[in-house]
Amino acid sequence: MFQSVMIIVFTLVYAFSIAYLVTTYLVKKSNDFGDSKGKYEDFTYGGLDLLDKKDNVKGTMDLNIVYPKKHSI
């Protein structure tokens, strides 16, 4: 009995929530224009230049490069 009730409850909730998801997605696709922003590719021609990489280092690793800093974030 418990199992049958739960199956019906989950069936209804799943059906309505997927219907809500599909409807919301399609409404957005239909009525929302140009929600994208400028991407990384729009602002660089050379791409990422990976100068050095090491996998599996210690989390406490020191970062030692000293840059002539002009702007800080």
Binding site: T44, G46, D49, N56, I65
Partner: peptide
């Protein structure tokens, strides 16, 4: 230059690994 952390593996074998990256980008 950065130290990043990431989770590798799933379930009980999941563990955190650390990575070193040094990179540059010229934005225009």
């Amino acid at each position: 230059e950065m130290v990043l952390s990431g989770v590798v593996g799933t379930g009980k074998s999941a563990r955190i690994k650390h990575y070193y990256r040094h990179a540059k980008i010229n934005f225009e």
